Simulated assay, not measured.
Amino acid sequence: MIVTRKAMKRAVDAERARYDDLAAVVDVAFLPSVCRVIKEMREGWAVPFSYVAADAGVPDKWTREIIRALAALGLAEHHPFCSEDDNLIRGSGYSLTANGARVQAMLRARSGEEQ
C-alpha cells in the first residue's frame, strides 16, 4: 500500500483534532485537584494514596476518592506496592493505565512540564 503525503497529512490532522478534543474534555471535566493527582501518579508503578496526596498537595481523603474515581473510569488500576530497595511487596496502591498515562502526558504538555 502506497501512502501519499496528502493521506498522511489527513491522518496527522485527524489525530491532532482527537488530541485537542481530549484536552478540551479534560480541561472541563477535571478539577485542578484531580489534575494534580494525575500528574503525580506513574504508569505501571503502584504508589500508596498517602504518597500521591503529599506530592500533589491534596488531602488524603480527597486523593483516595479521586484515585478510586479514576480507576472506575479506567485511568488507574490497583497493584501491589513494591519497595525500591529489595523489590518485596510492602502493600498496595494504584498506578495509571495506558489511557491514564496519555491523559497525564497531555496535562503535562499543556502546562509545559517535563515528562
Rank of each mutant, 00 (worst) to 15 (best):
R68Y: 15
G44D: 00
P32N: 00
A23Q: 06
M1I: 09
W62R: 13
R68P: 09
D55H: 12
V58W: 06
G100E: 10
A24P: 04
A98M: 05
S33V: 13
D20W: 12
D21K: 09
M8H: 12
V47L: 11
I38M: 15
R36M: 07
H79Y: 10
D27P: 02
V37R: 03
P59A: 00
R110Y: 01
A105V: 05
D21E: 07
A101H: 10
A29V: 13
A17D: 12
F81W: 14
L73E: 09
K9T: 11
R5K: 14
D21I: 09
F49W: 06
R42S: 02
S33R: 10
F81D: 09
D85I: 10
A14L: 13
T97M: 04
G74M: 06
F30P: 01
R108A: 04
Y94S: 02
D55G: 04
K39N: 09
K6C: 02
E65Q: 11
I38Y: 08
H79P: 03
I67W: 01
C35W: 05
E84Y: 06
D85E: 12
S92D: 06
D60P: 03
M41P: 06
V26M: 11
P32S: 00
R108G: 01
I67K: 03
A23G: 13
G44A: 01
C82S: 08
A17F: 04
R10H: 11
P80K: 06
F81V: 09
S83D: 13
D21F: 03
R64D: 12
F30M: 08
R108M: 13
W45I: 13
E40F: 05
A109Q: 11
A72G: 07
R5Q: 09
E84L: 08
V26E: 04
E43F: 05
N87M: 06
